[in-house]
Structures are given as structure tokens and as C-alpha cells.
């Protein structure tokens, strides 16, 4: 009988304790962020989306090779002889290659960040943009190439002509020097990623 009354009083007491707690929380500041209006600042090393400063890229393919899921697709064309490609981010003269294709498919990306470390010019890196949802999966394939397809076609043809010309020169040299000169390795004016 005694336990019965103790139970009742402790029950009522615990109800009052709980109600005091909820009442005090009624006036504490809420922790909600009103998302589209208030955005959380992402921390520095967050991995959200890859970005490429294409003017710094030297076309070394190290990121492509490092990628475990092969989501980076690169095509390079050698620049025209003497072409001014502008300055890099560090105000140096731009090197050697133009990129008809430098695609990173964020739908395939596994966010491991392995492509970021090998880059010699630190031109591929994470940015803090986390709002890149798309209705079409193909829109997640980000293009960083700096040459239009038409321009690229012209450049391919030029490179092809240049190659033929060089081959001819080599053949001519060969003919002039007899057969002693060993065959040179192929010219690398055009290359493809795969």
C-alpha cells in the first residue's frame, strides 16, 4: 500500500519534472538552419565537387590514371607552333596543350580525392559547391575543355597534316642517310585518353 502511494507521487513528480524541461526548451534558441536562405559554410577540406583550372593543366594525365573509377576523360591536342595560349593562374606562359575534352563525370565519381594529390600544377581540386542536383544524369558530366568541337576538328586536321609532313621529312632524312638511322618513335602530336 505504501509503495502504491509512493508510485503515484513519484509519477506525478516525474511528470512535473518533464514538463519543466519541455517548458524551458520552449524558450531556448532553436537549432534549425532555414536552408535555402541560410547556408552552412562548408569546412575547408570538404569533398563536394571537383573543379579544374584548365589554363593551368599541362595534360599529364596523372589524375586520369589515378582515378579508380575512370570518371575523368581527357583529350589533348598539341598547340600550334608558336601559339599564344595566354597566362596561367600564376602568370606564367601557358604550355603545350589544348583540351578539346576534359570531362569529369560526378555521377561516377567516388569522391576519393585520389586525382587531387598527383596533380603537379594543383589545377584539379575540390570546391565547396554542394548544390548540384540535376534532373538528367548526363548533366553531372562536367566539361572543362577549353576548345570548341569545331576548333578541335580544325586542330586535329592541322596536327594530322603536320604529322604527315614530319613523316615525309623523316623519310627524306632516312633516304639521305641510307638505312643506318633507326626508325624514330612515333610523333605524339595527337593523343587520346584511352
Amino acid at each position: 500500500m505504501r509503495a502504491y502511494f509512493i508510485d503515484i507521487f513519484s509519477g506525478v513528480g516525474s511528470v512535473l519534472v518533464g514538463m519543466r524541461v519541455t517548458f524551458s526548451h520552449l524558450f531556448t534558441r532553436s537549432v534549425t538552419e532555414q536552408y535555402p536562405r541560410e547556408k552552412i559554410e562548408m569546412f575547408d577540406r570538404s569533398r563536394n565537387r571537383l573543379h579544374v583550372d584548365i589554363e593551368d593543366c599541362i595534360g599529364c594525365y596523372l589524375c586520369d590514371k589515378a582515378c579508380p573509377v575512370d570518371c575523368i576523360h581527357i583529350d589533348t591536342i598539341k598547340a600550334r607552333p608558336g601559339e599564344d595560349l595566354g597566362l596561367t593562374e600564376k602568370y606564367e606562359k601557358k604550355k603545350t596543350f589544348v583540351f578539346p575534352k576534359f570531362d569529369i563525370d560526378m555521377a561516377e565519381c567516388c569522391y576519393c580525392g585520389l586525382c587531387v594529390f598527383p596533380c603537379p600544377t594543383e589545377c584539379i581540386y575540390w570546391i565547396s559547391d554542394y548544390e548540384f542536383a540535376e534532373y538528367d544524369r548526363s548533366n553531372l558530366n562536367y566539361h572543362f575543355g577549353n576548345v570548341t568541337p569545331e576548333d578541335a576538328r580544325v586542330r586535329y586536321e592541322e596536327a594530322e597534316k603536320l604529322k604527315i609532313q614530319k613523316d615525309k621529312e623523316i623519310a627524306a632524312k632516312k633516304a639521305a642517310a641510307g638505312t643506318e638511322i633507326p626508325s624514330q618513335p612515333k610523333d605524339d602530336s595527337t593523343e587520346s585518353a584511352e
Binding site: 517548458f23 526548451h25 520552449l26 524558450f27 534558441r29 532553436s30 537549432v31 534549425t32 532555414q34
Partner: peptide
């Protein structure tokens, strides 16, 4: 609103 604020939320806004 009361439910939300008791749970430190904001509720419909």
C-alpha cells in the same frame, strides 16, 4: 509551433 520549439526546432516557417 509549440511542439517544434519544445524540440528546439522552428516548425512551419
Amino acid at each position: 509551433k509549440i511542439a517544434a520549439h519544445m524540440q528546439d526546432r522552428l516548425g512551419p516557417m
